[in-house]
Amino acid sequence: MIYLTNIDKYYDSKFQRTFVLKAVNLEVKEGEFLSIMGPSGSGKSTLLNIIGLLDAPSAGEYSLYDKSVLDLKEKAKVEYHRNFIGFIFQAYHLIEEMTVYENIETPLIYKGVKGRDRQAMVADLLDRFNMVAKKDLFPQQLSGGQQQLVGIARAIIGKPKLLLADEPTGNLHTTQGEMIMEVLRELNNEGMTIIQVTHNEKFAEYGKRIIRLEDGIIRKDVIKASPQPSPMEREKESKVMMVESGEPNVRIV
């Protein structure tokens, strides 16, 4: 699904070149749940931005679904954002002047989904995240966890194949963080490919694969053979558990 080959990202100043990413090679297969870890400034977010087509690499090759996406025109990038990629952010980045309902609905409007269909899709998600009663509230009237749930709902309403989460639990306390991670796991179990950036070892463990970045270089790439179900997960229906047990599609670079 995702092939990054020899990706560099650097900034030139007068006398020196500063690398943020250097010779990054990464393949992510459909259905993976990848956690990217690393200290501040190691290039995690930059890597995520490149994968999400929000930033362009300085050198290297990037193909998404077997198509090179390096020289895409703005319009083509928009198509990817509308149909393939969803984003979740540490600071939620909800649109403040929009209600919960409107925030979730926004990607569908840009996608050109008709009003009645939009209504049904938003209603489904509100129901799924237990937020029906909060649909008319504005972001500032919600708790951090609730805001992030809206952020996730907005990210997934367009049914993206790839969900990119940049420290999705960074602003949340542990309980809320766990709740968000469970949602992500559930989405992954439904087949959505997820790449998250996190500082939190515990939450990184929700991923089926963890890579560690240091100074823009991938130092470690670990595939978890059989991820341990979390306490919350054990309570889940067996149907979900069935879906979860699949072959991990990972290769060590």
């Binding site: 999400g52 929000l54 703005e74 319009k75 928009v78 954002h81 509308r82 984003f87 980045h93 909800l94 649109i95 926004t106 990607p107 840009y110 996608k111 907005r154 367009g158």
Partner: peptide, 8 residues
Amino acid sequence: IHKTCGAE
């Protein structure tokens, strides 16, 4: 934010 939601 709008762009990540698919805005042109």
